[in-house]
Design a protein around this nucleic acid. Structure first.
Lengths: 124, 124
DNA sequence: GCAAGTACCTACCTATAAGTAAGTAGAGTT
DNA sequence: AACTCTACTTACTTATAGGTAGGTACTTGC
């Protein structure tokens, strides 16, 4: 967000959300947390993600140093993705938030349903 | 994200990011964390936010129960926003991530600059 | 009348994220 | 030849988030 040339982030959360914000990154990170995975494994584990989005997200996470990519130079291609040490520090920092989300998941779901219902009502 | 009628979140982070994801919510929450604020105060504190976005984000945060809105029924209007108990539990859960972001802020900024530079190089 | 203060609402536009579909490469199998 | 496996790339489209500009309401002061 606040990454214009002359500006810095207002707070640490702002910066952190630049690294893990968006629909897919936390899901990918969640699966990689349990150990290294190949591309195809991740694709099957992360339900609903397209190859294109998976590649894009992995590339971004790699460029942020959260994830490492190991190419075994084989044919058919064999590539393995794993969380880096830096990425592990992030997953550790995410633990409390993860627990909070688990604890309040039903509440969040109910709210989301209510918000959807209100939107549809407003749409007529 | 995963709030379709028949689906639930894959992990707690997924759910939590539904509550605080996006450009503005963490910044608003960060300012409200220090105590209740009126609309105009928040508008001045959160640099770069438009009234429209501030209203929209506050409304969403209120509907999620993170923020409370107290209308003093005065003219000119006087409304005060504060973090709820539920919101406090969220801010507590966000502390480690906030600290992580603070700790790695410069690294994140440098990476963002590099990504921008690469994008511009690719654009020609 | 205008301007200031306060906190919103609405219509429309722009930017960004995500999605779909087609394609690439090499090796092996039918 | 086609198909399978693997992991990508590219062009274009759609969905969503954020932004701009105009407006509302009331009171007070000039």
């Amino acid at each position: 967000m606040k990454n214009e040339a002359d500006e810095t982030y207002t707070c640490g959360l702002d910066a952190a959300l630049d690294i893990i914000g968006g629909k897919w990154k936390v899901l990918i990170l969640w699966h990689l947390h349990s150990g290294p995975h190949r591309f195809g494994e991740l694709k099957r584990l992360v339900e609903g993600i397209s190859e294109k989005m998976l590649i894009q997200q992995l590339k971004e996470m790699e460029s942020h140093g959260i994830v490492s990519r190991k190419d075994f130079k084989e044919v058919p291609p064999r590539v393995e993705y794993a969380v880096t040490d830096f990425g592990v520090s992030l997953t550790e920092a995410l633990r409390p938030l993860c627990a909070w989300g688990e604890e309040h998941m039903q509440r969040i779901e109910q709210c989301s349903h209510k918000c959807e219902a209100e939107k549809q009502r407003a749409a007529g």
